[in-house]
Write a protein that binds this DNA or RNA. Structure first.
Lengths: 338, 338
DNA sequence: GCATACAATGCAAACGTTTGCGTTATCTTG
DNA sequence: CAAGATAACGCAAACGTTTGCATTGTATGC
């Protein structure tokens, strides 16, 4: 049950297999007549090109690797979708790996992808240290980081302006009359979170209001972690009228806790998220949040990767996209007669 | 900036490259001394095996292709995650493709994956016709179908017992006192939906209650489609106390419509889903539903695929897993004094 | 009509591995 | 110590493509 190769076609069509190769790859230095003949024969015999052999000689696989913490995560899955679509458009296919928030695992799959000769790698790092662990590989393997704002590292990345994101959100909350706004779930070890928190703090300062920050000691943002953190937070007196969560996941965890405690959102408390994951627009959730333009992120990520592949000696590219407020139902105007 | 190959190591270590290959692949016919030496040199030179060349001679890539309609879909992304994890465990990597619910696209990516010499393919078909379109490839490429119950087709598949799923759900609703239960979003062109509807109908018959079915003319189940369908349905008088949605997505669409119409769930109407996608357990959603055991499905899918790869002449395997009721907050006991 | 140019095709090497087989060296056995 | 067995390693082919170069055939220019 051997698959039909170029040699089989050559024999059948009475030409050398170089000719077959040229006919199939659309080389100009071949007569139209023989090309037509070869195409006919190869179609008849059901030939499909062997990309492995092709990659062998061309030293190009047409593959790009994608490393995420977990495609289960709605943010990552959406990104993965758009990356695959855009890559497909450009003639590339996708190899998907999950690192499960594990730095060692991250390194392992990176090595595997290199072994598999992918032309480049797109990675959503699990920590701000990731690019350090990967440093030895980064000079030989075109790589672009997604999500983290790695200004000072010698890497290409695409991310949003996280600082501006929280500023935009704060402006909105301020406009609704809120003055006591708690920032929920600030986390160490991520530049993204650093920047978001900074945006919050600066906004407070400019407005002359007191920042209140609820720190998260978890290493990742998830609904579960948000829920746990919210439970301890809400056990204490509530001296704020709005909550700005560091991520949508944390916001949902917070929401879960408030549901249990019969705290009504937005009636008793306004809630704002960040990321605009798919969950946010679900009925009953209807979370007001700051959007990361996933499709644009995905497209720029593969474009800068391809750029890097085709032009390795060029400098590192930094793309910072704009976040956007998505107004839904979890934030309400603070009544003057409080 | 050439990558270091086996030949480079051979030269450096003063052995033939056959010896290097044997040392690296753990062949027994080599002395411990030279193996240690070769390993040391290859480590020092930063060698990484070229899987493409390896695949070339072994005629095995260690790759499995996964085709889904869209990883954006929470059901698919969860599946993709577990498939990747399980495949990784068995030494395989994953190539991910989205078909976007398009049969022609489905065929295209199937061909691409074959070209890329994947050892096998796992596909979540978009329609009950998919395996017909793919028929020419199926005899030469190990494939397993996931989700659809393709009893009569010459394919391997893993799915859940969808018929039993609705039966279980109906039993539960009946136990809560419901007698007027509407089945929401029955769809043509999918065996899965056929079976679920049958389970509903048979349950009605046995209980001596009248089946009520709201048909969907959409070609896929989504929140949006569920929402549209629910709006026209809810414009008519409501002569039922519970709604059994064909899928969680449809249930969420229904929920969105009820939110707008101030119909309270579960107070005014009980709602049951099917699939237990991640959304279902979110706060405020809290959807009672029938679970598809995703991790088990993923594991059996890759196991039967590997089985098929290593033993192509064996018969087709049909794995039918058991669904399970997940009790949450959208169904309530029907008060006797209605 | 002959030299020249160019178009069309064939030959064979190369990509980086694995592996059957042949060769050498070492060991065992009587 | 000779002969046979076995362990360790090298040689070279093979996997299915692409492509530089050589070769052949045909058209062009004078």
């Amino acid at each position: 049950m051997r698959r039909v190769t170029i040699k089989d076609i050559a024999k059948e069509a009475n030409v050398s297999y170089a000719t077959v190769s040229r006919a199939l790859s659309g080389s100009p230095e071949i007569s139209e007549k023989t090309r037509a003949h070869v195409l006919e024969v190869s179609k008849r015999m059901g030939y499909t090109k062997n990309y492995i052999a092709h990659a062998m000689v061309k030293k190009r696989t047409g593959l790009i690797g994608l490393i995420v913490a977990s495609v289960k995560n709605p943010f990552m899955s959406e990104l993965a979708f758009h990356i695959e679509q855009h890559a497909m458009l450009k003639g590339y296919n996708l190899m998907l790996c999950n690192s499960s928030h594990d730095t060692e695992r991250e390194r392992q799959v990176f090595e595997v992808l290199i072994s598999r000769q992918v032309d480049g790698i797109i990675i959503v790092p699990t920590s701000a240290e990731t690019h350090r662990h990967l440093a030895p590989y980064l000079e030989t393997t075109p790589t672009v980081f997604v999500g983290e704002n790695l200004r000072d590292a010698a890497v290409s990345y695409v991310a949003i302006d996280n600082y501006r994101g929280t500023r935009i959100g704060m402006e909105y909350l301020y406009g609704l009359g809120h003055r006591d706004i708690l920032y929920f779930g600030r986390r160490k070890g991520s530049v993204t979170h650093q920047l978001r928190a900074n945006g919050y703090i600066d906004a407070c300062e400019e407005a002359g209001i007191e920042p209140m920050i609820c720190h998260s000691s978890y290493t990742s943002s998830s609904i579960q972690n948000g829920y746990q953190l919210a439970k301890t937070l809400l056990a204490k007196p509530i001296d704020y009228t709005a909550v700005f969560a560091a991520t949508d996941s944390m916001a949902l965890g917070f929401m879960k806790a408030t549901s249990e405690l019969k705290i009504r959102i937005p009636k008793d408390l306004s809630l704002m998220g960040f990321d605009n994951i798919q969950y946010a627009e679900l009925p009953r959730i209807d979370l007001t949040t700051i959007e990361q333009p996933q499709q644009a992120i995905a497209a720029t990520a593969v474009d800068t990767l391809l750029e890097r592949i085709n032009n390795p000696q060029a400098g590192y590219a930094h793309h910072v996209l704009s976040p956007k407020l998505i107004e839904r139902g979890t934030c309400k105007q603070l009544s003057d007669t409080e």
